[in-house]
């Protein structure tokens, strides 16, 4: 009885062992010299395989860099830190960007995060019409610019959620929100958004105008409770001149912003938020 069971096990196991040994022998015999840098670069990369670099994945990107087809800073997820490591591996030094100060370098290494520049939920922003169709921002936008009364506002149907390979975006009450702890800054959502209201910002930037509307203040007031009405209060209060007006919309320059938070206090519509 037990022999009857053991024979098949032995035969299949033996076959497996035979082929295993044969294959490992063959792989030694036919070993291919791979460019060692590919492996090193691959280890440096974040390994997210998000394809935001334009290659099929981290392996393909590492190969392209080693062959000189891709630039060392081609990985948007890895940012400056990874780029520097890759340059070290490739032996091209740190020729790019001169010699940035230690503080700037630190800032750079934190990388970027996506941010949805809109604050219009179902409660705060009026609706243009009731949308009953495909759950897709592109489709909804094709219909009179989307169901939101504000032509610049978030559609909230989650096209960016589906574009994100990291599960870093959620839609709450008709408004997409980036979970910055999960965001790798690959920028796929930026490309996916039909309203172009997702932007990549440096991670250290804490104060952002959560609105993209270039409508006049009066119009914004009528449509949305939290839109920028271009009252200029933040521009005046900012001591370092980090806020400027861009066609009826306040914009914070993260490079100048000191994160003092004064603008948040004066904003009458609470458009500027500290994150």
């Amino acid at each position: 009885m037990s022999v009857e069971m053991l024979i098949p096990i032995a035969i299949i196991g033996g076959l497996g062992l035979f082929f295993g040994v044969g294959l490992s022998f063959a792989s030694k015999k036919f070993e291919v010299q791979v460019d060692e840098r590919i492996k090193l670069i691959r280890e440096t990369l974040p390994g997210a395989n998000c394809a935001a670099c334009g290659y099929t994945g981290c392996d393909a990107f590492a190969e392209a860099v080693a062959e000189g087809k891709a630039k060392a800073d081609g990985c948007p997820v890895g940012g400056a830190g990874v780029a520097r490591e890759i340059r070290k591996i490739m032996g091209t030094g740190t020729e790019e960007g001169g010699s940035p100060g230690e503080k700037d370098r630190k800032k750079e290494e934190e990388g970027q995060t996506a941010r949805v520049l809109c604050g219009g939920t179902y409660d705060t922003c009026k609706a243009k019409y009731k949308y009953e169709g495909i759950e897709d921002c592109d489709a909804a936008t094709a219909l009179y610019g989307g169901p939101s009364a504000c032509n610049y506002g978030c559609v909230g149907l989650g096209t960016c959620v589906r574009a994100c390979p990291f599960g870093g975006i959620v839609v709450e009450n008709g408004l997409a929100r980036v979970l910055e702890s999960k965001c790798k800054g690959c920028g796929l959502c930026v490309k996916a958004c039909p309203k172009n209201i997702i932007k990549l910002v440096p991670r250290y930037s804490k104060h952002t105008v959560l609105c993209s509307s270039h409508d006049r203040g009066l119009v914004v007031r009528q449509l949305c409770d939290v839109g920028c009405i271009a009252c200029l209060r933040c521009v005046r209060i900012c001591t370092v001149g980090a806020i400027s007006m861009d066609d009826q919309l306040a914009v914070v320059n993260p490079q100048l912003c000191m994160n003092c938070g004064e603008c948040v206090k004066v904003c009458p519509t609470s458009t500027i938020k500290q994150l």
Partner: peptide
């Protein structure tokens, strides 16, 4: 010989998989 015809599928797949691996290794070289 050991009356194990019922193992045909699994044994054959094992053989084929090993062969393909072998072809792959050789071809890569």
């Amino acid at each position: 010989r050991f009356r194990l015809e019922y193992l045909q599928t699994i044994a054959f797949i094992l053989v084929i998989a090993a062969l393909v691996q072998f072809v792959e290794i050789v071809l890569r070289k």
